[in-house]
């Protein structure tokens, strides 16, 4: 029993030490994906941007993230202009490749969440704002964006939880995140169940923290809406 506790302690500490990698990857990808998603939604309001945004969403939502990671990491390394070009220092780094793949994939999902929120805003409100003489930018800032935020938040939160869990795929391209470190620990101890349970607990802690934070923001946004 003592041996078991000692093993769990040492293993748990090693896994927790990998937490910054998982958190950095999740945070940067969430920011990157959200920014691209906003750009995609904005692009869909223009004639030229609409087909481009739709192709982006179609491709990245329709293919597995695991394949996208492999294509960015191993695939692009075989492309001469990238392998010998200025961008190689970036694509040489597995963490950057994971970030790039996750940003592309998650932006497609988040863009759809934002588009749904956009469409849920009653057109009458936008027309009323127009009738008041609000400029396009003022309409977005004072009528559309605040409501989109409120409408999109639950589904957006869902995407962020999925994103945190998806970071574990980065371990397949040599990133030593929580899952990657867990796998190296298993390679030495052969105790699959215990090690993966500890890793799962770390992800559970992360998603629980995020869920609590989102619930708080949701409550704050609902203040004054009469709900």
């Amino acid at each position: 029993m003592n041996e078991e506790i000692a093993f769990l302690t040492v293993t748990g500490l090693a896994i927790v030490r990998a937490l910054p990698v998982t958190v950095v990857l999740a945070l940067t990808s969430a920011l990157g994906a959200s920014a691209v998603a906003v750009a995609l939604v904005a692009a869909q309001a223009t004639r030229v941007g609409r087909p481009l945004a739709q192709v982006w969403i179609f491709v990245f939502r329709g293919t597995p993230l695991l394949l996208q990671m492999f294509m960015v990491y191993y695939g692009l390394a075989a492309v001469g202009p990238i392998r010998h070009g200025l961008l190689w220092p970036l694509f040489r780094d597995p963490l950057f490749c994971a970030f790039a793949a996750m940003t592309c994939c998650c932006s497609a999902y988040i863009a759809e969440v934002l588009r749904a929120a956009w469409q849920a805003i009653p057109p009458g409100q936008v027309e009323a704002a127009q009738a008041c003489g609000m400029s396009r930018w003022t309409r977005v800032r004072r009528v559309i964006a605040p409501q989109m935020l409120r409408l999109a938040l639950p589904a957006y939160g869902n995407e962020l939880v999925m994103l945190i869990k998806s970071t574990s795929l980065a371990s397949t391209i040599t990133v030593l995140d929580v899952t990657g470190v867990a796998q190296t620990l298993i390679a030495h101890s052969y105790r699959t169940l215990e090690v993966f349970c500890l890793a799962a607990a770390v992800y559970l802690g992360l998603t629980a923290g995020l869920t609590a934070l989102l619930r708080r923001i949701e409550r704050n946004l609902e203040r004054g809406t009469g709900r």
């Binding site: 191993y74 040599t174 190296t184």
Partner: peptide, 15 residues
């Protein structure tokens, strides 16, 4: 750096 398969490792060694 840890690899799941030797083929993946060989690719990264060559590139």
């Amino acid at each position: 750096r840890y690899y799941r398969t030797m083929g993946e490792r060989d690719l990264d060694l060559l590139n």
